[in-house]
């Protein structure tokens, strides 16, 4: 699996997801997020183009990321989500927790 990469610009971080947002990826991603936030990032944008699978762990990661960012008055934004995942997130009202944009 290819690595997801994170690009940091001042207090903004852009993460391009290259793997499914599932349990196996969560640990690495968590570390990336934490490092970014520690480094002063306030706003994280996650690009989910082409990602088709999300599981509970992945969702948990997103939620906790937002929780962490909120403490710094920051914001999480998820971009380019596929239609199914969007449906799922909406039904869970995740769109009320952080910003979600579809494809």
């Amino acid at each position: 699996m290819s690595e997801s990469s994170i690009v940091i610009n001042g207090n903004r971080a852009d993460l391009i997801m290259k793997q499914d947002l599932v349990a196996s990826a969560v640990n690495d991603l968590r570390t990336m997020m934490q490092d970014a936030i520690t480094g002063g990032v306030k706003n994280i944008f996650i690009d989910m183009t082409g990602i088709k699978v999300v599981d509970s762990m992945g969702i948990g990661l997103l939620i906790s990321t937002q929780n962490s960012l909120s403490k710094e008055d920051g914001q999480l934004e998820i971009l380019n989500i596929s239609a199914d995942i969007m449906d799922l997130f909406k039904s869970m009202r995740l769109d009320q927790h952080f910003s979600i944009k579809g494809e």
Partner: peptide, 13 residues
Amino acid sequence: NTVTDFAAVGTLD
């Protein structure tokens, strides 16, 4: 309708 207890999820730390 769904309500997720976001807070209960905790933070990255």
